[in-house]
Design a protein around this nucleic acid. Structure first.
Lengths: 211, 211
DNA sequence: TGGAAAAGTTTCCTAAAAGAAACTTTTTGT
DNA sequence: ACAAAAAGTTTCTTTTAGGAAACTTTTCCA
């Protein structure tokens, strides 16, 4: 039971600045449980995990049983040895959402909701769901020249961009333009001016996710 | 120029304050240095930080000067007390951007950070940036049978999935399995158990974004 | 400037983590 | 069902973290 693509877990949750009285409960975190899950998910014994991490078998056992609070050094060894990513160790596993069950929205190729603009041909994905943290859309970059823009595109949030086909020139306010080809990706702050232009014969296709 | 992809104005209310602390620093994961940067960026003295975190002034000093390796418990106090975002502690502060403007991170095809697991072959994208709202990664689904999972994958957050090549069976806890082929996409709550299995001859490739 | 107060460091002690090995439980093969 | 082996836990010892207070450095203001 791969607990999950281990490295990711709720990063965003950690912006919460709980600046109340420090003393307060600091560590309901079930670190040990998590570690055990991860180790078992890789079908490792304590012995094997020990070799991988460089931590004594007994130490691992104690960590998993929450008998000790590992040092930062130990946590790092765990992380490196087991290929864990930190956020997941620190974040509280959220109690499963009330019976509501999860949401899911499938969008078949080409079945998104069209949203044309002068410069881009957007296809909104997963439009059945509302209140999403992310907004995914697939875009055909019709523009082939920078002149077609009057100004930077600039808005709140962060954007992830993945080139599906063709090639584009990725213009950003504070960096030199850079050409991206199929398979390349970019992540950037949207407050920074940005714009895309197709450099391939055919209009380039990109996948965009905004949050 | 459109101020922004107009269609996403509404949905985008949340911004976590991505606290920007000073930049600087070298490669090696220097926890102490980071902590000091963060503390100073908030204009806190050791005494104040001590009150906020519940850690002794001396302990903080030693942590900052890398004289000790704090325990997990201590790190948690730090995190809570100073409102630190975890990845911030373990990742390098972002490169100062040219004009103090936005951040940007380009990942060339195949140049992501590999992260193998028994069932998936992940390639983390945009790893240069920390404190991201989204975590993008490209994954090769090595699993070809459901049997290889012991249990559902389940975690916090929401996930967007786009099939780049091949085909997969997308299993979810509350829905019937559904086959997705290149170009199809899905958006779902991660608390709901989920798992992927390649159904094409070749391992399928998917793009994943988690938030 | 001098000197007091604030900020930061070091020392010293105790409490706790890490490792080695003994011990217990679980699994496996016949 | 019974060893034997493997996996996991506990004990014991050594090492190291954490906190109180002494000590040093920096700041700031008469």
């Amino acid at each position: 039971m791969p607990d999950k693509p281990s490295f990711l877990k709720e990063e965003q949750q950690f912006f919460s600045v709980t600046r109340d009285n420090a003393e307060a409960s600091v560590e309901p975190l079930e670190l040990g449980k998590r570690v055990r899950e991860i180790r078992l998910s890789q079908n490792l014994t304590l012995e094997e995990a020990s070799k991988l991490t460089g931590l004594a078998r007994s130490t691992l056992s104690k960590i998993e049983n929450e008998q000790i609070s590992p040092t930062f050094t130990a946590v790092n060894k765990l992380v490196k040895g087991l290929g864990i990513d930190i956020p997941q160790l620190f974040t509280q596993p959220k109690k499963k959402s009330p019976a509501s069950g999860g949401r899911r929205d499938i969008t078949r190729r080409g079945e998104g909701k069209p949203h044309p603009t002068p410069t881009y041909e957007h296809e909104l994905l997963a439009t059945q769901l509302s209140s999403k943290k992310m907004i995914p859309f697939k875009t055909t970059v019709r523009t082939h020249s920078w002149d077609e823009y009057q100004d930077w595109i600039r808005h709140d949030g962060e954007e992830f961009l993945y080139v599906l086909s063709g090639s584009i020139m990725f213009y950003t306010e504070f960096y030199e333009p850079i050409e991206l080809v199929a398979g390349d990706s970019a992540y950037y702050d949207c407050e920074m001016g940005h714009a895309l232009v197709s450099t391939s014969k055919k209009d380039a296709e990109v996948l965009w996710v905004t949050a």
